[in-house]
Amino acid sequence: MLNTSLNKSLKMLFTLLMLVVGMSLVMPNAYAADDQSSKQQAAKTSDADLWRAVKAGESGYSTDIGLDANVLINKTGNEGKVIRNTYLKPAIVVAIFGVFGAFLVFFLVNGPSKLSHGFSGKMVERWKKADLWLHWIMAIACLTLMLTGVFIMLGRHFIAPYVGEDFWAGIIAASKFIHDWSGPIFIVSWLICVIKWMPLQTFKLYDLKWFLVVGGYINFGPFKGKHPDSGFANAGEKMWFWTLVIFGLFISITGLMLVLPNLDLPREASIAALLVHGISAVILIAFTIVHIWMATVLSEGGMECMVSGYCDENWAIQHHNLWYDELKANNAIKYQN
């Protein structure tokens, strides 16, 4: 009996010992698995936080000494790209086709502004030869910048899909080269034009009436035949001049910021310059189209002023009467020989 009880006790003790040993082997593994799972979860959370911070533009550490070397992903650059693609590119399309289309419709409905008394045949000096050279140098540089700028901004959408990769690479490389080297020509000629022509471009009280009757260009309704007073430059020309002054300044400064190699600008400054450059370009493109329409087909005899420097006397009387009266009063009219 005693042996039987002892045997049972030893069996229970052995079973208990095996249970303890088994638990000692299983529990660490379970804890290790839990610990590994916790570490993996923490790693995932840490990675998410890291990339969230990187995408937000937070800076880290780099041995590079560049201005933005510690920033892996620049948030401003991405936001600037979105603004350019969402707003600037469509605005350029509207500036080109919208403004051109609106004036085409106006021309087809209204026709040109004809001279009430026809051409007199007597040509009055309006611009000096130096002014003509200055105007055309700036005009050609400006149009070249606009054309190449449109290729750079929109070419990948309207040209690249329809030509080979090599041909497109040549177009964009040539556009960039011509754009960069036309810039200094525009800036210098623009600055000379501003200094030389600014005294002729001050707004007067009578310019308000020019806007109210749309410059006398309407050939129907109550505006027909209304030719408002105007000095050497009419109100529309003055508005174009000051638009060119203001946005020409913006586009010149930002253009230099973008192309000068030695400027170590923050990424934010570069993106701001790019956006201001684009906005200024949109406005200048729209006003340039208006200027070309007004100076050519919408004004009978107007284009001759910038070809020869002389205008027909009846054109001067109808479109710039105050300037003509001043010349006549001072006996300063110079006729073409």
Score class of each variant (00 low, 15 high):
residue 12 M to H: 14
residue 15 T to V: 13
residue 16 L to G: 06
residue 17 L to E: 12
residue 25 L to P: 06
residue 26 V to P: 06
residue 31 Y to I: 15
residue 34 D to P: 03
residue 34 D to T: 12
residue 38 S to R: 12
residue 40 Q to V: 11
residue 46 S to T: 14
residue 48 A to K: 14
residue 48 A to H: 13
residue 52 R to D: 15
residue 58 E to M: 06
residue 59 S to Q: 13
residue 61 Y to E: 14
residue 61 Y to H: 11
residue 63 T to L: 15
residue 65 I to N: 12
residue 66 G to W: 00
residue 67 L to A: 03
residue 72 L to W: 07
residue 74 N to M: 12
residue 74 N to Q: 09
residue 80 G to D: 02
residue 81 K to H: 01
residue 81 K to W: 05
residue 85 N to W: 09
residue 92 I to K: 01
residue 93 V to I: 14
residue 94 V to K: 02
residue 96 I to C: 06
residue 99 V to Q: 05
residue 107 F to H: 11
residue 108 L to G: 00
residue 110 N to Q: 03
residue 113 S to A: 15
residue 115 L to N: 10
residue 115 L to Q: 02
residue 122 K to C: 08
residue 123 M to S: 00
residue 125 E to Q: 14
residue 126 R to T: 11
residue 126 R to W: 10
residue 127 W to P: 03
residue 128 K to I: 13
residue 133 W to L: 10
residue 137 I to H: 05
residue 148 T to E: 05
residue 149 G to H: 07
residue 149 G to S: 07
residue 161 P to E: 04
residue 161 P to D: 01
residue 163 V to G: 00
residue 164 G to D: 00
residue 167 F to P: 08
residue 167 F to Y: 04
residue 168 W to C: 09
residue 181 W to E: 05
residue 194 V to I: 09
residue 196 K to M: 15
residue 199 P to N: 05
residue 210 W to P: 04
residue 212 L to Q: 09
residue 215 G to H: 07
residue 216 G to A: 07
residue 217 Y to A: 10
residue 218 I to P: 00
residue 218 I to Q: 02
residue 220 F to D: 01
residue 224 K to E: 08
residue 225 G to P: 14
residue 228 P to D: 06
residue 229 D to G: 07
residue 232 F to M: 13
residue 236 G to A: 11
residue 236 G to V: 10
residue 244 L to E: 06
residue 244 L to H: 01
residue 244 L to F: 10
residue 244 L to K: 01
residue 251 I to H: 00
residue 252 S to A: 15
residue 254 T to H: 03
residue 261 P to V: 03
residue 262 N to A: 07
residue 271 I to A: 05
residue 273 A to E: 03
residue 274 L to D: 05
residue 283 I to W: 00
residue 288 T to S: 02
residue 292 I to K: 01
residue 294 M to P: 03
residue 297 V to W: 08
residue 297 V to A: 01
residue 300 E to R: 02
residue 302 G to A: 06
residue 303 M to Y: 07
residue 305 C to Y: 00
residue 305 C to Q: 11
residue 308 S to Q: 04
residue 310 Y to H: 01
residue 310 Y to F: 06
residue 310 Y to C: 02
residue 310 Y to A: 00
residue 312 D to H: 03
residue 312 D to M: 04
residue 313 E to P: 00
residue 313 E to C: 00
residue 314 N to C: 12
residue 318 Q to S: 01
residue 320 H to K: 06
residue 322 L to H: 09
residue 322 L to K: 09
residue 328 K to Q: 11
